[in-house]
Design a protein around this nucleic acid. Structure first.
Lengths: 225, 225
DNA sequence: TTTCGTACCTTACACCGTTAGGTACGGCGG
DNA sequence: CCGCCGTACCTAACGGTGTAAGGTACGAAA
């Protein structure tokens, strides 16, 4: 009986970090709208108002959640060419956003330590490869916009399972039977391309990423030799 | 006294379209969190529960709001080269998202008529220019991810006014004085680049868009002649 | 004249984030 | 040993949210 709370509940104490971690689990399991202070407290074995001892308010928790997702993104490695480092980072980021689809629409929150660390490492990588400041800013804006935008599209797909997307799209099309009349090109693309077996929207990511990195590489070569 | 409601309140009747339009105005003015059924009803001169006669629920309103923003995006013109059409469309989309920053994180909603019409027109434009189905899907995923991602980044900036971004960033950096120690590259970029007079994040958009269109054009030429 | 559909209304409920103000308890100085 | 104090939790309550249930005034139609 090490606990002072009696023999029946040897729960460990709440902390901001633990609250944020459990909040991420809740959002992963049931979406962001299933995260309330009361439910989070219950998951921690505590009453709602007790959270405010460890946390400023709900936005504070959400800031922490986003920063925790950022912490899952691999930093660009320092001992590989910049292009490999950026490619790996992009895939790692996409995977992180896909694991936590609720997070992508919360980027408005004030950046935390992991977020800043990540940005800093990316700048260091590109500057270390000889990028000018201007080109570094261009490349970061372009890459991050693409990765985040792709994650946003992916999060808005009907379902996350690759196979279920097809059936969901199909039922959507069937539901809107008039579609082939009102939106013939969209219907054609759905039927002849997206609904084909083996198609997965996630595969589109590599094409755009390669194209963007090609363009950045060309701009870099053109500028620096 | 044409109204049957007495002489003092000649308000016109509520409809789904009018409710959605007023909801967009409310969100534009005070952000998405300032939109509640009660406040929307009040703006329409009606009680909250009366809205449910015209609208299924709040999500129904939000779906309509997003579709209304999509309706503001210019369709790709049919009598210009595909590249010009895509460029104009991208700038129009960015401007629409910038006018309604709350909308970009709501794309998860089920697509409405304007959204589908837009998608259909983009497919028609590219297919008409000789793009294969595969390349059309690639190009759309890439362009939309970039445009939406850029809008998402832009919406998460501290303030929308170009001049205020700098002062906000500056105060942010000053507040985190340790930053130049913990995140030296980020601090350097902020001081030597972003905080320089004349820098506006929105200007980054054109660089990435041009680079992406160059790449798509090269892929198209390589595939079709 | 009765009936009906339209467009609005009031009431009520469960839940939300958060303010205000306790309370049990381990460790500390005296 | 006693009293104090900070830590970590608690209950009660307030104004706000979306919305289910059901009522009401009224023009038009039967």
């Amino acid at each position: 009986m090490a606990s002072t709370r009696g023999p029946e509940a040897p729960r460990d104490p709440v902390s901001r970090d633990r609250a944020v971690r459990v909040a991420v689990d809740l959002a992963d399991a049931g979406g962001l709208e299933s995260l309330s202070m009361r439910r989070l407290a219950q998951a921690l074995g505590v009453e709602a108002m007790s959270l405010y001892y460890h946390v400023k308010n709900k936005d504070d928790i959400i800031d922490g959640m986003v920063d925790l997702v950022f912490d899952e993104i691999a930093l660009p490695s320092t001992d590989t060419p910049w292009r490999t480092a950026m490619e790996d980072r992009a895939h790692s980021a996409r995977a992180a956003w896909a694991r936590h689809p609720w997070a992508i629409s919360l980027m408005r929150s004030t950046p935390g330590a992991a977020t800043l660390r990540h940005l800093d490492a990316v700048i260091a990588c590109l500057r270390g490869a000889g990028f000018s400041m201007t080109l570094t800013a261009h490349a970061m804006s372009l890459l991050d916009s693409y990765v985040d935008g792709f994650a946003l599209q992916e999060a808005s797909l009907p379902l996350s399972e690759a196979g279920d997307v097809n059936t969901a799209t199909e039922s959507f099309l069937a539901q809107q039977h008039m579609m082939s009349g009102a939106f013939p090109h969209l219907a054609e693309m759905a039927q002849t391309h997206i609904l084909q077996p083996g198609y997965a929207y996630g595969d589109e990511f590599a094409f755009g990423l390669g194209l963007i990195l090609d363009g950045i590489e060309a701009a870099h070569r053109g500028a620096s030799g």
